[in-house]
Amino acid sequence: MHIAEGFLPPAHAVAWGVASAPFVVHGVRSLTREVREHPESTLLLGASGAFTFVLSALKLPSVTGSCSHPTGTGLGALLFRPPIMAVLGTITLLFQALLLAHGGLTTLGANVFSMAVVGPWAGYGVYRLLRRFDLPLMVTVFAAAFVADLSTYCVTSVQLALAFPDPGSGFLGALGKFGSIFAVTQIPLAVSEGLLTVLVMRLLVQSSKGELTRLGVLVAGRETGANAEAVAR
């Protein structure tokens, strides 16, 4: 999902930067508030950022015969809400843009918008929606991580199709082209990300019950139940 440095026309680069900036600024505020009010979450915040760091470094082969990587933003989004992931995702993207020549500064806005804004919000939306039904926690976690991952790559496809519409078939033709490169490749990787997020969530349930209860992921007195109390957080 990394649009390479200089590969978005200046107007698009600026527009995506403007679109992402408020989310990141709001995210920085949420993050500082969270750390001030709950200093004990710092460790789990670090772990959520670390999960994104690991997963976005894992380039995995896919069924289309090309390689791509998961994003790891679903976990933090459903633990701490999406604004905080806007910050943690941006840090990851900056690291890759500055040190790995992966993505770039001119395309940072667009990449932040797909990976650190839309992905976390889409995953969180699915999580909140599914928790209204009496589904096992891990089913909702899997779905949230899957959607956060896949939606990121769909947004990248749309961004590129907007910038480079096909001369013959226009925006939709280009969307099909970029979508087959990104979105189709990503489906098995989104499954992998869902499974890994479930794994980490299982470890968290074993090790950090108190923290998960405070964050509303677990409901006191119920192991993996979903009820209105948790949804109302």
Binding site: M1, G65, C67, S68, F164, F178, I181
Partner: peptide, 19 residues
């Protein structure tokens, strides 16, 4: 599954640049 390509298992990001 990458055998049909000239260069199997390249990054999707690179393929997008080619596109």
């Amino acid at each position: 599954l990458g055998d049909h390509k000239e260069e199997p298992f390249t990054g999707a990001d690179t393929e997008a640049q080619t596109a």
